[in-house]
């Protein structure tokens, strides 16, 4: 099983030379997709803002200023301050770095695991039973106690191996990835089950195409659209889950802002300082929207029936 799942990315690199023109096609198609370009621009802008922004708006997001708490927007504090006098704008930018990184990496991990298991289960009849029962198992495990066990077993080990911040990052990404791949796996498997009985796959098989090649050339491109939807939903899910983790003591320390955490902490202050919740909420939504449109564009670009139309 691990053999098969490992072979997919290897295969992709192997075939790169032959596909170069394909990716060129895809890119040119992608550029003509208006929504995709807008999505990409928004996403890049958000990334730029959180990476470059803190060098322009140089207030320390963790700096407290009790005298200036619960302020509305002003030139000094474009998004106001929170109940400890921390600058919300600086916090949103600092939080974005973590949230985007966690969101994208955890989403990729869960997508990879989910797709691999889904394709394998759908394509190889022998693997279907065991892999789907494994999926059932993961779906059934109670999340909160599981997280508490994971914290207890791994936090201190990872902390001593990678240092406090990297260690926690690895743990969070791993935890989110490992607890959110099941839906993708079930959906991909469902699609693969129909695909593998369709004419083009049967034809490919009848001329003796090896399974790995059928998967990479015929199956994967055709299950791309549910995977893209999963990716969009996965980012939002990862950003929110990350904030839930920090309440269990699994996430980053409490004074380390992330979008999900800002939204949660600010929720009760909604009527007092609305900007505390509007901006982090908007940031999450815009990111997800951006990724969604990019996914749309990518899917269209990769679909040979649409490409070149």
């Amino acid at each position: 099983m691990s053999d098969e799942s490992m072979s997919n990315p290897a295969l992709a690199t192997e075939e790169m030379p032959e596909r170069r023109s394909l990716w060129g096609d895809v890119w040119s198609q992608f550029r003509t997709h208006k929504g995709a370009m807008v999505g990409a621009v928004v996403f890049v802008l958000i990334c730029l803002a959180v990476v470059v922004g803190p060098y322009i708006h140089t207030l320390d997001p963790q700096r407290l200023d009790i005298l200036n708490k619960n302020l509305g927007p002003s030139w000094a504090h474009p998004m106001g301050t929170d109940n400890l006098g921390r600058d919300t704008f600086a916090q949103v930018m600092a939080g974005g770095r973590v949230s985007l990184l966690v969101g994208v990496v955890a989403m990729l991990l869960s997508l990879f695991v989910g797709t691999a298991i889904g394709v394998l289960a759908g394509f190889f009849k022998k693997l279907d039973g065991p892999l789907m029962r494994l999926t059932d198992l993961f779906l059934a495990l109670p999340l909160l106690p599981l997280l508490l066990v994971i914290i207890m077993l791994f936090r201190d080990t990872l902390r001593s191996m990678f240092g406090p911040e990297t260690g926690i990052f690895i743990l969070i990404v791993f935890v989110i990835g490992i607890t959110s791949w099941m839906q993708t796996a079930r959906i991909v498997r469902g699609d693969v089950l129909t695909l593998k009985e369709q004419e083009f796959v049967v034809a490919a098989r009848s001329i003796g195409t090896p399974s790995r090649r059928i998967i990479s050339r015929h199956i994967l491109p055709n299950v791309l659209s549910p995977i893209m939807v999963s990716a969009t939903l996965g980012i939002a899910n990862a950003i929110i889950t990350e904030s839930a983790l920090s309440f269990l003591g699994l996430g980053f320390p409490s004074d380390f802002p992330t979008w999900g955490r800002l939204l949660y902490d600010g929720a009760n202050f909604m009527q007092l300082t609305p900007s505390r919740v509007i901006w982090p909420g908007l940031a999450i939504s815009l990111t997800v929207l951006g990724v969604n449109y990019m996914g749309d564009g990518l899917r269209d670009a990769l679909d040979p029936r649409i490409r070149g139309r």
């Binding site: 969009t232 939903l233 999900g260 939204l263 999450i284 939504s285 990111t287 929207l289 969604n292």
Partner: peptide, 19 residues
């Protein structure tokens, strides 16, 4: 539809409920 569903999904229920 896309916009509403993306906002609906990316804003967690604890927040929409409170609003």
């Amino acid at each position: 539809g896309t916009f509403i569903s993306m906002v609906g999904f990316s804003v967690p229920t604890f927040f929409t409920g409170l609003v």
